[in-house]
Amino acid sequence: MKQAQTHLARLESESIEIMREVISETDNPVMLYSVGKDSAVMLHLAKKAFYPSLPPFPLLHVDTTWKFKDMYKLRDKVAKVTKMELIVHQNPKAKEKGINPFDHGVLHTDIWKTEGLKQALDKYRFDAAFGGARRDEEKSRAKERVFSFRTAQHLWEPRVQRPELWSLYNARKAKGESMRIFPLSNWTELDIWQYIYVENIEIVPLYFAAPRPTVIRNGMLIMVDDDRFPLEMGEKPVIRSIRFRTLGCYPLTGAIESKASTLIEIIQEMLLTTTSERQGRIIDKDQGVSMEAKKQQGYF
């Protein structure tokens, strides 16, 4: 009797299988690259899936102009090292109107991210987009398919999802319709960290604790990453040892105070922690099922 595969080997092989199916069954795929740890793992898996070929698709970064500086740095480095094409899309309307997280609240995410993503997919006629979402992140994601069908208007309809049996993925669609593909569906946060550790994958330094300038907004610890941040009269950022469990637009991403400066320490801290990953993101907390509502509108 042969030894069963360990869970990480099983997950890796499953993700590779998914990526190869996408390449074979769609016309113009793209990988959404958000520079976070999940994107890093997804890109690493893509390199494995197609080796010795380069992954046969470009990377797409839907930029909001409000990401952390360290994220832009790593993004450009990764594009250079992997030799893959990197497409950066910034919603021109959002730019024109000067949409920002301070004055526009929820609109900021809607317009830069959700609208921006739809624009980019339409502009380049991508019919399949890889995303790094996981089922363990949030309740409505737990029901997401691996091959998630979107209408020509990019809508997700949770009630008419295609049944997904075995590893038989149905990638068929009409013109204009598209698929979102989630190769990390069955990974958990711990699996991601462990894989980064085992495979030695480079991630944004912001995941590691370091002294950084911070202020407190709405009970969240926010890092002041540039001088666009509106400080109150006489307010001075406080240097605290912080790190991030999840990365997004810097004014909307909560940090945690931490001294964990190595991967091992991060994993240790994560295992002992008592708050869930998405708590660091303001956008999820609008209402009880807000992620589901966002997904229906086309947010990833």
């Binding site: 069963a4 360990t6 869970h7 990480l8 711990l190 462990q194 994993i267």
Partner: peptide, 10 residues
């Protein structure tokens, strides 16, 4: 801990 977790079956 990680060592043991890494070798867990699913």
């Amino acid at each position: 801990y990680l060592e043991s977790h890494q070798n867990k079956l699913l």
